[in-house]
Amino acid sequence: MSDDPVTRFKAPVRLDYTVTAGSVTADFLREILKGRLVGRRCPDCRCVYLPPRSACPTCGVITTEQIEVGPNGTVTTFSVIRFPFEGQVLEPPYACAHVLVDGTDTPLLHIVGNCDVDDMRMGMRVRAVWAEELKPTLASVRYFEPNGEPDVTYDSFSGHV
């Protein structure tokens, strides 16, 4: 018997969940399977949310209208991830960015790939790159990549950073 004090013991916790998407996200994911990005529009303020919101966060009403958006968008701001951690899709360094997808009013947090991280700019134009096999997840958009269009001015998106 050791007289060393017990300071730690392992107590693994495992819980399994079967997560349901809810009808609004389910509609969105069905469209993802077709390679389409579909947001929802608030009937009051007319803002388009992507990913769709079941209720408008500012007006507090149920959203009903679906609207196809993208596939192009604008990088409004970004960060370059320079260290590895578990579950990464791309090798660091790579950029995560707020992408204001055309036709939406809220930036989507996603990855920018196929682009030298030192080349990342606010205002850069990008397009969605789909995975070869589409699954019902936003990860079916593997990343956004530069689409070759000229950058847009900061003033044109400064309200959507």
Partner: peptide, 18 residues
């Protein structure tokens, strides 16, 4: 979490663009 894009990298990944 299912259905979400796989970009999150802890709090830093969220706040750095801001």
């Amino acid at each position: 979490f299912p259905f979400a894009p796989p970009t999150t990298a802890g709090a830093g990944g969220y706040f750095a663009p801001i």
